[in-house]
Design a binder for these strands. Structure first.
Lengths: 230, 230
DNA sequence: ACCTGAACACCGTTCAAGT
DNA sequence: ACCTGAACACCGTTCAAGT
């Protein structure tokens, strides 16, 4: 008997960039960065891989749109009205938590600098520094230091998530690195050896926040001496 | 006439991980991250792509080794004996300059956290904080904040370098982003609009150092209040 | 032990052909 | 205008076969 090759039935709901990005986020959350391929995305959307290119320029465009979506949600959800220092800490923690929940966002933020998401983050930090009384000449550098801290931690966390994908539990994994650090040459690495024990037990989120506080303290010190060090 | 397929002559000098990494660095410096393929590397070394796998586990292993090589050179070259704050600034700048010269190192550092290079960087910053009189309980967080700043800027610079690969000159490129920022909604983005003008003219290296100074100032403030904020 | 290079399994992206 | 899916040009990685 003859087997007729059936063409796949055309979907009734039209494709759109919005639906494509939504599906991409689902795939990224479920399977990590490696799971997002145009073939997987096309299958998920019951279409051909070429159809996606009608709505999206390329993979970078797709990842940028997905990242912007997640970041926009965090920034928009920020409750206004808190005192500036608290608002800055809350925004930083909101971004940290979003990146923790979607590690692929961390990868994107740390490797795509001029993302549409960036002005939102910049504004969130910068406008609060203004309220804190940071002199105008120092605002750009101070804001960028806060942003860099968020993006830097984002990249490291995403990389850690990639390593953890293979089921190793976090404490055991950090423990094995701590062991390596503890075995380094005492003459060359006294500090690293001393700090190794803290590695498996430290809290990433608290350490991230400690960094934000350190930077904010440095910014506070700035108000006393308007002239930068030579 | 019959054309005999000549097998490529076997090289006289043996392959080694060292020679492979050296060649990889040459290719990365010359052509950027996209230029390093096992085929290109095999051609450069006049061998088969499979031969490389005898000495190197996979591409990640290769990139890690290349990155460690560059970082080790910076850390080793650091002149000792300067006052701790100056030593920290010098190490930070040394790393910045190395990443600036080899943007692919920035990509690696920002996406591969537990690189062999990391203990060297940690030790460089951490041991100096000890000399600065930072209390032991705060040393881990303070060191990691400095390291994150270096890695964060590394990632952003590498990403910028990827965008610049296509010949656009830096000021023009940043100018076009500044234009976009300047056109954002004044009600939602007052700070970003104000800061846009500084974007094309600012110096990345100085801004990086301003961030290091901010963190160091925050660390200095730490000595006065040993108990962390609740 | 080390090297060769074809083969495999996968990508992102393009494009003629369909509706 | 939008979609289909095969085809193209690449990858990293493996492996039988050579020396």
């Amino acid at each position: 008997m003859a087997i007729k090759k059936q063409r796949a039935a055309r979907r009734t709901d039209a494709l759109s960039k919005e639906r494509i990005v939504e599906a991409a986020i689902e795939i990224l959350d479920a399977g990590g960065e490696g799971a997002l391929t145009f073939r997987a995305l096309a299958a998920h959307l019951a279409t051909g891989s070429g159809a996606i290119y009608w709505h999206v320029a390329d993979k970078d465009d797709l990842l940028a749109a997905a990242t912007d979506g997640v970041v926009a949600r965090v920034v928009t959800d920020m409750t206004d009205g808190a005192r500036p220092r608290e608002a800055i800490r809350a925004l930083a923690l909101g971004l940290f938590d979003a990146i923790d929940a979607h590690p692929w966002v961390g990868t994107q933020l740390s490797r795509a600098p001029w993302l549409a998401a960036l002005p939102q983050i910049f504004e969130g930090f910068g406008s609060r520094l203004e309220e804190l009384g940071v002199p105008g000449s120092a605002q750009f550098d101070a804001t960028s230091t806060l942003v860099i801290h968020v993006l830097g931690v984002a990249g490291q966390n995403a990389a850690n998530a990639r390593l953890h994908a293979h089921r190793t539990d976090r404490t055991a994994f950090l423990g094995s690195i701590a062991d390596q650090w503890a075995q380094l040459d005492p003459a060359q690495y006294p500090f690293v050896r001393r700090v190794a024990a803290q590695l498996p037990v430290h809290d990433d989120r608290e350490q991230f926040l400690a960094g934000i506080d350190l930077i904010l303290d440095g910014i506070a010190a700035l108000r006393q001496k308007p002239t930068p060090r030579p």
